[in-house]
């Protein structure tokens, strides 16, 4: 009844789910794991502070990912980080402009920013225009972001989430208006452009860890510890498999194909 060729995958899936669930459960009960430093995220407050001093708004975008595909993880993390950034701008009484590409992300982002301003007791500072739906089209979205950055002379630009080729347009566009820029992306191929053009870059899964890191949310921190355990499982599999293969046994290669 089981699909051949997918049995080991099924076992891996269960290992992952059990590990993550176990650590989330422990974190909920108070055993919250501590996380290593993520330098780019520490720079967020500095960027917002500088932008406030200059009297300029902060630009934020949660990227072009959505909630229904494999980019969902990055988008959810980007929304978590938006909560943190909006709370900081609210505390500093600084303006924020959020550029949105996916229509389903739009109402969520608006709600997050509104709540943040309310939490900081400056609810009346919130304006609906702070969160703008621009376009689902990749470059229509990018051109709108460029337009916003140069028309409204932003002081800091924060780009987190799932990005594609528009990454460099936004990063270099923000540099051209003199904004301090911080970017993060969970996919590898856009990171070099962020590294080239931004002041701080958050690499790969660091983004997914970002929400947990900034909020200290036990569930997310627990989940990260669980994921670490699965990575360890992968490393052990690799080491044992490679040693066996070098010694002439292809047992593990066959096992993984089951």
């Amino acid at each position: 009844m089981l699909e051949t060729g997918r049995i080991f995958a099924m076992i891996s899936l269960l290992v992952c789910w059990v590990a993550v669930y176990y650590f989330i459960d422990r974190a909920r009960k108070g055993d919250v794991p501590t996380l290593r430093r993520i330098p780019g995220l520490d720079a967020l407050d500095e960027a917002i502070g500088r932008s406030t001093e200059m009297g300029k708004p902060v630009f934020y975008s949660p990227g072009r990912g959505n909630l229904t595909t494999s980019s969902a993880a990055a988008t959810i993390a980007a929304l978590d980080i938006l909560g943190h950034v909006a709370l900081s701008t609210a505390k500093y009484k600084c303006d924020i402009v959020v550029g949105i590409s996916d229509p389903a992300v739009y109402p969520l982002a608006e709600e997050i920013v509104r709540t943040s301003y309310r939490t900081a007791n400056v609810g009346d500072m919130f304006k609906p225009e702070m969160v703008r739906f621009l376009s689902p089209d990749q470059f229509a979205f990018a051109s709108s972001c460029l337009g916003i950055m140069s028309r409204e002379k932003v002081g800091a630009a924060v780009m987190m989430g799932f990005w594609q080729a528009e990454s460099l347009l936004l990063a270099e566009g923000s540099a051209q208006v003199g904004a301090i820029s911080i970017a993060g992306c969970d996919r590898l191929f856009q990171i070099p452009f962020f590294v080239a053009a931004c002041d701080y870059t958050i690499i790969g899964e660091e983004l997914l860890a970002g929400g947990a890191y900034l909020s200290g949310d036990p569930i997310q921190s627990g989940s990260l510890a669980g994921q670490d355990l699965v990575k360890l499982f992968a490393v052990v599999l690799l080491v044992v498999g490679v040693v066996a293969r070098t010694a002439g046994s292809d047992y593990f290669v066959k096992l993984l194909a089951k």
């Binding site: 595909t69 494999s70 980019s71 990749q138 594609q164 080729a165």
Partner: peptide
């Protein structure tokens, strides 16, 4: 492809 959907999908 230029992105999503692409090779991974």
């Amino acid at each position: 492809a230029t992105g999503i959907p692409g090779p991974a999908e």
